[in-house]
């Protein structure tokens, strides 16, 4: 890695790169979730259980406010076109676009051109685009466009600090998404009073794996029995699966080390790295079985709280509202 210290990065650019990546990751996950839910997730009456998505995103309050008499099916436009929902595809497309415009001087023209066309298409989506018949096609295309974006980013972005903040955003969001998925689906799918290890509805559990694009990776482990514990273990702890919690945490750790060692931000990164070490240690020290026994929901909540405070600490460190004393930095520049 080149000497990043020679390339100071505007704080605003760092912030926008991070949010660009976060929203992109969030949107991709939402598209996957909608696609899988439509196909595989049914309630007791065999209806598509759209409201499970509302739970995963903790949107119960907003959803019932915007749709007081809403049915489960209202969740689809709520997540695709609803402007009043900051977590809808359209709102996120807007956020991605604004962030992309801000960092446009920095990113490759190929990356910008793709984002320009992609987000413009998303912003033009209307009610007709969310009819159930076309939903899976729509979500499939969104997922592919997100992947095209990652490919262009991987292949063309200059490896400076901006790239590191981009990765930081992508993987923080990856952690957030996988913990939400595991937390909510686990509790929905585990019948009341059942204990881990008992017979489960294989179709429903497979859908959880599919939502995370983990179905075939999981098959390759050829588990003797499919239990909630080994699915949870795979999603949280598998080092080979790129969307697992542990993989995402490892990536964040990697980025922080690069920022600390190559960008001359050692002092700034140390507290962040400590916070991250704690997260990684608690995860590697426990089996999925331990986690479930001690309380999966509590652990997931704890992880999420830690992730949120990491995000806040990053903001306070790299884009403080009041800049740190000039004199100190002016001295550093002289060196």
């Amino acid at each position: 890695m080149m000497e990043l210290a020679h390339f100071p990065l505007l704080s605003r650019y760092a912030e926008c790169m991070m949010w660009l990546a976060r929203y992109m990751e969030r949107m991709e996950n939402l598209a996957r979730l909608l696609e899988v839910t439509e196909t595989f997730v049914r309630d007791a009456e065999g209806q598509t259980a759209w409201d499970s998505i509302v739970s995963i995103n903790s949107d119960e309050n907003l959803f019932s406010r915007l749709h007081p008499d809403g049915t489960s099916a209202d969740a689809v436009p709520f997540y695709v076109t609803e402007i009043g929902n900051p977590g809808s595809i359209r709102s996120m497309a807007h956020a991605i676009r604004e962030n992309a415009r801000a960092v446009r001087p920095l990113v490759s023209t190929e990356l910008w051109t793709h984002l320009n066309v992609f987000t413009r298409w998303l912003l033009e989506l209307d009610e007709t685009s969310v009819q159930t018949s076309s939903l899976s096609g729509l979500c499939g295309r969104i997922r592919q466009e997100c992947q095209t974006h990652y490919g262009i980013a991987e292949g063309t972005l200059y490896r400076d600090q901006a790239w590191l903040f981009y990765r930081l955003g992508k993987h923080l969001e990856g952690c957030d998404q996988i913990t939400r998925l595991v937390d909510i689906r686990y509790h929905m799918l585990l019948p009341q009073g059942e204990v881990p290890g008992s017979a489960i509805d294989i179709t429903q559990w497979t859908s959880v794996l599919r939502s995370a694009a983990a179905h075939h990776s999981f098959r390759r482990l050829r588990p003797v029995t499919v239990t909630p514990a080994n699915i949870v273990g795979f999603l949280l702890k598998n080092e080979g699966f790129p969307r697992s919690l542990s993989s995402n945490l490892r990536q964040i750790d990697d980025v922080l080390s690069l920022l600390a060692n190559h960008a001359g931000l050692y002092g700034l990164c140390a507290p962040l790295q400590e916070c991250l070490d704690e997260l990684r240690t608690t995860l590697s020290d426990q089996t999925a079985g331990d986690i479930i026994l001690r309380g999966l929901h509590d652990y997931m909540s704890w992880v999420q709280t830690r992730l949120a405070s990491t995000q806040n600490a990053i903001a306070d460190t790299f884009w403080p509202s009041v800049p740190t004393a000039v004199t100190q930095v002016a001295l550093q520049v002289q060196e």
Binding site: A5, P8, L9, L10, S11, R12, A14, Q161, F165, A263, G264, L265, F318, W319, P323, T324, V326, Q328, V329, A330, Q332, V333
Partner: peptide
């Protein structure tokens, strides 16, 4: 921003002249 009559930009590494 301006401090001591000099102009700085806000970067991830602090103010740069």
């Amino acid at each position: 921003f301006v401090e001591n009559h000099r102009v700085y930009m806000r970067t991830t590494m602090g103010p740069k002249p």
